[in-house]
């Protein structure tokens, strides 16, 4: 499955780039992320409780940031697995200046396997979009000046 998603964020590119590669921010913003541990240069181990509607599963996985070109782009690879199957995603993240803020374009190839591929495929597209929407909404909150005061 291929996803092409565009989000607007209310902060300059440098800040967005830094936030998107900061494990603490990621842990706060990734929906269902229970733990995000940096276990190497640009490599993180994550424990996720990924839920979509009533369908919820525990996944653990590794995320890697590659081809890092701050503040313009990087490639995020995610390799997650849980009892219902696995998710592997490679996403090119491009950050462009847009007025005061930043436009993030992500082009992701997502591959799933196991039970989720067999019976969850029709949900995958919607679930991935929702997760991405939730993530960027949270990130946007994280980056708005208001949140600094909190």
């Amino acid at each position: 499955m291929h996803l092409h998603l565009i989000y607007q964020l209310p902060a300059p590119r440098e800040r967005v780039f830094a936030a998107m590669t900061d494990p603490a921010v990621l842990q706060r913003c990734i929906p269902g992320c229970e733990q995000m541990i940096k276990d190497g240069e640009d490599s993180y181990e994550a424990h996720l409780q990924v839920g979509f509607a009533g369908l919820k599963g525990k996944y653990r996985g590794r995320a890697r940031v590659e081809d890092r070109r701050p503040p313009e782009s990087y490639t995020l690879t995610v390799d997650g697995k849980g009892a219902p199957g696995f998710v592997r995603a490679t996403s090119r993240m491009c950050l462009g200046e847009k007025g005061e803020g930043t436009e993030v374009i992500c082009d992701a190839d997502v591959q799933i396997g196991g039970v989720i591929a067999a019976v969850g495929s029709r949900l995958l597209d919607a679930a991935a979009r929702k997760m991405a929407d939730d993530f960027f909404r949270a990130l946007s909150r994280e980056l708005t000046p208001m949140s600094a005061a909190q």
Partner: peptide
């Protein structure tokens, strides 16, 4: 599918 995942794995 092209990755060899079985998409007809249930009566669903």
């Amino acid at each position: 599918d092209e990755n060899g995942q079985l998409l007809t794995g249930e009566f669903m």
